[in-house]
């Protein structure tokens, strides 16, 4: 059983500097055809050839889903990251040919919601831009609460204000403006759904506040892609393919498996979707489970691993791959 949708060969059409940290990239199909439609909240995996290192990072689609002429993503430069965002910022130029995966939505709107309450922090705004465009076209009710470090880093705020007026609320950390979450959560009509995308701390704060305010679990949605962490190199036996591989310090286990020519399933590459779940056949050491997918019991059992974000420390790790 394969879930692989055809990849999309694209040309970089535009690169726009949004602010000191963020660049926006627009891709069009190389054959000039329309992009597949998508749903607000979807992401694509961008494949990069970083001077011989293959990088595949997921980014939320931020364009209007009704616009089939191209896809847009925004990339925040992460100086301490493994290099994907640096590659996008320093090396990707208009006219370059790249490859995108097909859109996948792990952060979909609940179509039944009476109202959509959107809470964004920093670069976490991107899926909401697509979602608001889709809601606006379909007549959905929404309001956005968007926090940024300062005015200069409040990407797309003026445009969103212009498009959606007082449905857009902005907050700036350096002006000590805080979202009044308890009041916001208390005032929503029954049937409202809450969505949060932003830094880990913000997601935790919003989810805990919603629970304390009596919001049902199924009405609270979040998206948090993990960047695969850097770490100490380690060695893995791939039993099914009979290979022994070494995972580099800034390489993920999944990338190392792919680099060895072994096919492995994936969708999000950020520890959220569960697609790359792999059986551990033997483990003498400690698996650093960095994913949001496995349960605590599964993690403790040491019999499963999510190679997109998790690492290993110890003597032997044998995987069924």
């Amino acid at each position: 059983m394969s879930v692989g949708a055809p990849k999309i060969p694209v040309t970089v059409a535009e690169v726009t500097e949004v602010n000191d940290l963020i660049k926006r990239f627009r891709f069009v199909r190389r054959d000039g055809g329309p992009m597949p439609p998508f749903s607000g909240g979807a992401h694509v995996v961008v494949e990069m050839d970083d001077h011989g290192t293959r990088r595949m990072n997921p980014y939320s689609l931020m364009g209007d889903p009704a616009d089939s002429t191209g896809y847009c993503i925004s990339v925040r430069r992460d100086e301490a990251g493994r290099g994907g965002s640096l590659y996008m910022h320093h090396h990707v130029r208009p006219g370059m040919q790249m490859v995108l995966g097909a859109p996948v939505n792990l952060f979909a709107l609940d179509a039944r919601a009476r109202e959509h309450l959107l809470i964004a922090g920093g670069i976490g705004i991107t899926p909401f831009i697509a979602q608001m465009a889709q809601l606006e076209a379909l007549g959905g009710r929404f309001e956005l609460h968007y926090a940024a470090r300062n005015r200069a880093l409040g990407a797309y705020m003026p445009a969103l204000r212009a498009a959606y007026g007082d449905r857009v609320h902005t907050y700036f950390d350096d002006e000590r403006q805080l979202i009044d979450l308890p009041a916001l959560l208390a005032g929503q009509p029954l049937g409202t759904h809450l969505y949060v995308c932003g830094p880990k701390g913000m997601i935790g704060w919003v989810r805990a506040s919603a629970e304390a305010a009596g919001w049902p679990r199924a009405t609270v949605h979040h998206e948090e892609f993990l960047a695969p962490p850097v770490g100490v190199p380690f060695t893995v036996d791939l039993a099914a393919s009979g290979k022994v591989i070494t995972v580099g310090a800034s390489q993920s286990l999944l990338e190392a498996i792919e680099a060895a020519g072994v096919e492995a399933p994936y969708l999000c590459r950020g520890g959220a979707c569960g697609q790359c779940e792999t059986a551990v056949l033997a483990c003498d050491g400690h698996i650093q489970h960095n994913d949001h997918w496995l349960t605590d019991d599964q993690k403790a059992s040491g019999t499963r691993i999510m190679p997109c974000v998790s690492r290993f420390e110890g003597r032997t790790l044998v995987l069924d791959r």
Binding site: S2, V3, A5, P6, P103
Partner: peptide
């Protein structure tokens, strides 16, 4: 169900 939740556009089964 696990399989279908991951079904991708353009890759019907």
């Amino acid at each position: 169900l696990k399989f279908l939740l991951k079904l991708q556009h353009g890759a019907p089964v």
